[in-house]
Design a binder for these strands. Structure first.
Lengths: 224, 224
DNA sequence: TTTTGTATGTTGAAATTTCAACAGAGGGGA
DNA sequence: TCCCCTCTGTTGAAATTTCAACATACAAAA
């Protein structure tokens, strides 16, 4: 378990929990680590919402697939980030999304009830974790608001530029990589892949952006 | 303040807080009540995110307006519901939405810091409120997921039917009222109002739904 | 009652997206 | 090296949406 300490210390769930307490905390929480191959699911749509997951290594994607097989991409998760917390905390019966490994990856799963309920050992950190959880869930809200901001645009071009500008802002540079390939980006923007490729080509020819695989560069940030 | 006790008792923020403690709590929180006319804003885009609002009477809408004046509808709020909590808890500098009264309405505003920070009077309820807040923020997440589920559909018809089915499910009946007029519904679904009206007309002629103003009835729930 | 204004429905043309199909590039393995 | 497979870009037709404009219904105000 110790080999994950570095990422766990960075994890917002354990913020302000003393380093020496972490081992005890993990035991008390009955935290367990699992490995996944690319494409495997940690969590499946319609499963009960019981666990909080923490990405240890690799990356995962939160996706939702509707009745007709249409996929939407909700978010990408990197080490230190959580998933499942909102559904577990809200007490829903089933999760409305799947969480899939986008490469070989490891997660730590914790029963959410163990976080909020103090154990018989009277561990001190439960309260701190609830405070942390509140901030994490609130931050997740912002991520969803951001997706809504992007996808509420009416054309593929506007959606793409809105997304790229946000990435540039978050990355602090007009040149950056995104965590999605074309199909995944299309699923995030809620548009057709072919139409997205066409639009990227057009923006490239117009000198607005440069795009190579998942690497983008914005030349004219305001020429949307 | 007492006249609002009924709605405050139903408010999830005060769940499991003793009735007799409420008066004390409201004073400790420095809770204040404000009135608004239809169309007035309690909260404006780009204002600091400091307050949690509780709807006391009337109703409000959470909307977001982009650079070009395009409006999206995020949610409708009825008495007992909260707004602003996610932004305040996440500690963002500015809120990304506006909250507007959709009729004459009253809200109670509370400085979010007063909820999480115990006061000098050593009030007991702070911890309970944080627990409550966690559930509320998590539930807000589900509301956003729901909007994404609806708006991720590609056609106006699919978006509309997805929305109506969800409403029917939540209302527990195939006949129900929605809190939006046509323009507002279009803003929620992220489509053109005229196209929405046309689609409603088509569904009506096809005998799939009945629609009169904001009252809807679904005849063939699976014929999407 | 008449006037005024708002909400909703309708329509046709222009713009955009979806859909299906295929071509080329590049990587990995045999 | 060759083959296979995945990813990305391209294309044209069909479907859908947007946009602007106007008609109608209804309710509130004069």
């Amino acid at each position: 378990m110790e080999k994950y300490f570095e990422v766990l210390c960075m994890c917002p769930l354990f913020r302000d929990i003393a380093h020496w307490e972490l081992t005890k905390a993990l035991r008390c929480l009955n935290a367990r680590v699992f490995s996944f191959e690319k494409g495997e699911a940690v969590m499946n749509e319609s499963e009960p919402a019981k666990y909080v997951g923490i990405v240890l290594t690799g990356s995962f994607q939160i996706v939702r697939t509707d009745f007709f097989g249409n996929r939407s991409m909700i978010a990408n998760l990197i080490p230190g980030e959580l998933f499942g917390e909102s559904f577990a905390c809200a007490g829903v019966e089933v999760v409305p999304v799947s969480v899939l490994a986008s490469e070989a990856a490891e997660v730590m799963l914790i029963d959410c009830l163990k976080i909020s309920h103090s154990c018989s050992n009277a561990c001190q950190f439960h309260q701190q974790m609830i405070d942390n959880l509140l901030q994490i869930v609130a931050a997740k809200n912002l991520v969803l608001h951001q997706k809504i901001e992007v996808t509420s645009k009416r054309t593929t071009r506007e959606k793409l530029m809105a997304y790229l500008m946000l990435q540039a802002k978050q990355f602090g540079s007009l040149e950056f990589e995104i965590p999605y390939d074309r199909q995944e980006l299309a699923d995030y923007l809620e548009v057709e892949r072919s139409g997205l490729s066409a639009e990227i080509g057009k923006l490239r020819r117009q000198g607005v952006i440069e795009a190579d695989r998942n690497r983008f560069k914005i030349y004219k940030p305001f020429d949307v």
